[in-house]
């Protein structure tokens, strides 16, 4: 227990240490979170298997859909939906549980005693889920494109914009939703509203294009509708610049609302 090495004089400290940078801190936290994600077998298999399994399950239904006049094919209905499942199940649901688990184990509180900024703690925790989610999407675009005959996206910039906005929305909503749950079990319930709303209303099960215009114009405003629309447009080409701008704005407004909710209600410690 020698301590000569533990305490350093101010001079030593000043010369030896430039302060840690934001990237270094994010990497360190992200790496630990990645380890945790890989050790959580339930979460991991759910993220990897569920989106593909759901796509398979839906294939029959979609094949029976009347897609005439919508410009859609089975592939351009199913593949964007699969990417949506990745956002919802692999990122949103898992990340909400992760935030709750870290809070309840006092990890967030402990991290706040260190040099990490609050935003870095939130971002670092989300980092592995987000990166893995994006990688999974990239893989699905290629493999799914072959399997479902959609080919590679013709407007990849729209696909990427959709994924980025979708990722922002689900990460921000995950942090916000964590405030609603007192335990990891309760987190499974806290994610249900956005999950159900998005599956039904944001064009993941039924594309908005096949719904009556009036219904579609309301559902278009849901948190993940813009992201889904842009993702699909990656293949179908879709909207003109004005419509694209509208979609982007809708997505950013939801992300902004979620960020506001996080600032207002996010809990760094369990309730006393």
């Amino acid at each position: 227990m020698s301590t000569n090495t533990i305490a350093a004089t101010t001079a030593e400290r000043a010369e030896a240490n430039a302060e840690t940078g934001s990237m270094a801190r994010l990497t360190a936290l992200g790496r630990a979170e990645l380890t945790l994600l890989c050790r959580n077998k339930t979460a991991l298999s759910m993220s990897l298997v569920l989106p593909v399994a759901l796509a398979f399950a839906m294939k029959q239904t979609v094949s029976g859909m009347d897609l005439g006049g919508t410009g859609l094919s089975v592939g351009t209905v199913l593949l964007p939906a699969t990417l949506g499942y990745v956002l919802i199940f692999a990122v949103y649901s898992n990340l909400t549980s992760a935030y709750v688990a870290r809070r309840e184990e006092l990890v967030l509180k402990r991290l706040r005693t260190g040099e990490l900024r609050d935003l870095e703690i939130l971002a670092g925790t989300a980092l592995p889920s987000a990166v893995m989610g994006l990688a999974q999407c990239a893989l699905l675009v290629i493999v799914g494109g072959l399997a479902l005959d959609t080919g590679l996206p013709t407007s990849p910039h729209l696909l990427i914009a959709g994924l980025v906005i979708g990722m922002l929305v689900v990460v921000a909503f995950a942090a916000a939703s964590s405030a609603l749950a007192k335990s990891v079990e309760a987190a499974q319930l806290a994610v249900l509203p956005l999950m159900v709303l998005s599956l039904i209303g944001s064009g993941m099960v039924v594309p908005l294009d096949v719904l009556p215009d009036r219904v579609a114009s309301v559902l278009e405003l849901l948190p993940l509708s813009s992201a889904m629309e842009l993702i699909r447009a990656g293949w179908t080409g879709g909207p003109d610049p004005a419509a694209t701008t509208k979609l982007l704005i809708n997505g950013f407004v939801w992300a902004g609302l979620a960020v506001f909710a996080v600032q207002r209600w996010f809990r760094w410690e369990p309730r006393r």
């Binding site: 240490n17 430039a18 302060e19 840690t20 270094a24 801190r25 990497t27 360190a28 936290l29 790496r31 630990a32 380890t35 945790l36 050790r39 959580n40 991290l111 260190g114 040099e115 990490l116």
Partner: peptide, 16 residues
């Protein structure tokens, strides 16, 4: 689910 080594490695990356 982390080990002491992993915990310290993470903390070291965030510590001047």
């Amino acid at each position: 689910e982390l080990t002491p080594t992993e915990t310290l490695r993470m903390w070291a990356g965030c510590t001047t």
